[in-house]
Computed example of a mutant assay.
Amino acid sequence: MNAPATQSSVPSAPRGPRPVRIAITTGEPAGVGPELTAAVLAGSAAHWPDAEFVVLGDRDLLAARAAAVSVDWSAITAHARVSVEHMPLAAPALAGNLNAANGRYVLALLDRAIDGAMAQEFDAIVTAPLQKSTINDAGVPFTGHTEYLAERTHTPRVVMMLAGTGARPLRVALATTHLPLKDVSAALTIDGLVETLRIIDHDLRRHFGVPQPRILVTGLNPHAGENGYLGREEIDTISPALKAAEAEGIDARGPYPADTLFQARYLSEADCVLAMFHDQGLPVLKYATFGEGINVTLGLPIIRTSVDHGTALDLAGTGRADAGSLIAAVDTAVSMARYRHAVAASSD
């Protein structure tokens, strides 16, 4: 369960007068979220001495799952900067066995974190993976974390961005998220792409300290449409959006063929790639960074990070799950919260 410390992609900021307070939702109770949370917090005092953590979940589940992977949960909760807000399961949870009775429990964890962050009780939230099917089977239409966060915070448009860690991380944002492939073209509009580019530009400056973000944009079709022979979305939608964004001072370039864009000669000076759909950009990102990558929701009024993987039901309770991605997500959330505090303090 151990994982190496990661290097945040957010510039270091001076530590403020109070610790940053991070809420962690433990996600699907049958998955790896509870045990990974325990593994991460076992090293929290050393990794993040200026952070406080509020774990949202069923305390008995957390203790049992920690014990199953040889983590001393009582030692974690004895630490002054780690607390558990007990939210009881609706039904017993067994590792690897989904139970729709707990679908609304998972949503309750997320609702509590969002409400606390909106009320500035939490400086950021970190979400362990959940199982969409369990929530849908519980009778709640649910597409994903990203869409739910947008709805609950009344944010008209958010952007899903996955990123690696390190001094110059690979970042990939998405113009569309969880849509069937047949619906992607119709979902792409000039105004929508311009607003997406605004959000990326704004949040890279605001949360990641990138002074002048450079965004590379993929086409939708093979070979970026081959001058219209393989599709007109690049001509009719993507290129006009790039011109409009450029007129606003946003450094967005493209559209580039997605199959050749992800090379060092293009990415070496880029701060983010905007891909048109989920499986266009994320396979490359996950191949390069899986196990250490993170998911960040841009455009929200709150800070939210998450892991780059799912519930891993086959690994739950075995001790074989790698905590690296959750460590990176927590590290980035702490760094983003510190950076936001530093910016706010400098403007006072």
Rank of each mutant, 00 (worst) to 15 (best):
D236W: 01
R232P: 00
L285T: 09
H278I: 10
A247V: 05
A258T: 05
T260W: 13
I238Q: 01
G299T: 14
E248C: 13
L267Q: 09
L274H: 04
I294K: 00
R214P: 06
L300I: 13
A258K: 03
R253P: 03
P255M: 13
Y266S: 08
P283A: 07
L216H: 07
T237D: 10
I238E: 02
L216F: 07
A270H: 08
Q263V: 07
A224W: 13
A245G: 09
F277E: 09
D308A: 11
V284L: 12
G281D: 12
E248H: 12
S268M: 12
A275V: 03
A288M: 15
P222K: 05
A275C: 11
C272H: 08
A275Q: 02
L282H: 13
R205P: 04
T305A: 11
D236T: 15
M276W: 03
P257Y: 08
L267W: 06
Y287W: 15
S268K: 15
A245C: 04
R265E: 12
F262C: 01
I238L: 03
V296T: 15
I238T: 04
H207E: 10
R304Y: 12
E246H: 15
F277Q: 09
I235E: 15
L261C: 09
S306E: 08
A224H: 11
L298D: 07
A241E: 14
P257K: 05
T305V: 14
P240K: 04
R206W: 06
G228F: 10
Y266D: 02
H202E: 14
N227Q: 15
V210S: 03
Q280L: 12
F262Q: 01
L242N: 04
L242Q: 01
G228H: 06
L274D: 04
A275L: 06
N227T: 05
L298V: 12
F262N: 03
L230H: 00
Y256M: 01
A275P: 03
I215G: 04
Y287M: 12
R206P: 01
A224K: 11
M276L: 15
D203L: 01
P255D: 09
I238V: 09
V296G: 07
E234I: 12
P211N: 14
S306R: 05
N221T: 11
Y266V: 00
I200N: 09
G219S: 13
F262A: 03
P255C: 10
S306G: 14
Q212P: 00
P257C: 08
R265C: 05
L282Q: 14
Q263F: 03
P301K: 15
L298S: 09
L242V: 02
G249S: 13
V284C: 07
P257W: 00
E292D: 12
Y266I: 00
G225E: 05
T218S: 15
